[in-house]
Nucleic acid binder design. Structure first.
Lengths: 69, 69
DNA sequence: GTGTGACTGAGAGTCCGTG
DNA sequence: CCACGGACTCTCAGTCACA
C-alpha cells in the first residue's frame, strides 16, 4: 500500500482532471502553472506546496479537502 | 476576509494545538520538526508542503482534511 | 513559551525541447 | 496529448541565536 502523500495527491489530481475531461495543458493554464509541472505532480514527483494545492482546487472547482480521500 | 491558504492553515494548526493543550515545542517533537519552524507555520510565514502537512496531521491525530475548514 | 531575522542546501517551479 | 529530460531561478526546509 502506497501511502506517500505525494503519490496519493497526484493520483487524486489525475482522477479529478480526467473526470472533467481536460488535458494537463488546460489544467495548467486554469491553475496558472507550468504544463510540465502538472505532469510531475500527477506522477508523484513533486512535493507540492499548500498555495498550489489551492490553485489546483480552484482550477478543478473542488475543495482542497477533496484531494485527501 | 483573509483567504490566503497559508494564513488559514496556520490558524488551524494553532487552534488544533491549543485544543490539545500542548506547546509548540511538544508539537514540533511529535511531528519531528524544529520548534521555531512550527511557530513560523502557525504565523503563516511558511508555504508548507504536502509532506509536512501530513506530518502535522499525524502529530495532531487528525485527517489532513481537517486543516481545510 | 514564543516571535523573529538571518542563514545554507535542497528542492519547488519554469521554460525549452524531444519521442 | 503526455512522459521525460536539461538547465535554469526562486523559494521552502530546517536550524540557530537572541529578544
Amino acid at each position: 500500500m502506497q501511502d506517500d502523500p505525494v503519490i496519493n495527491f497526484g493520483k487524486r489530481v489525475r482522477d479529478l482532471r480526467d473526470s472533467r475531461a481536460i488535458t494537463q495543458d488546460e489544467l495548467a493554464h486554469l491553475a496558472g502553472m507550468d504544463r510540465s509541472y502538472v505532469g510531475q505532480i500527477e506522477r508523484g514527483e513533486k512535493n507540492i506546496t499548500i498555495r498550489n494545492i489551492h490553485k489546483l482546487a480552484n482550477a478543478l472547482q473542488v475543495s482542497p479537502k477533496d484531494f485527501f480521500d
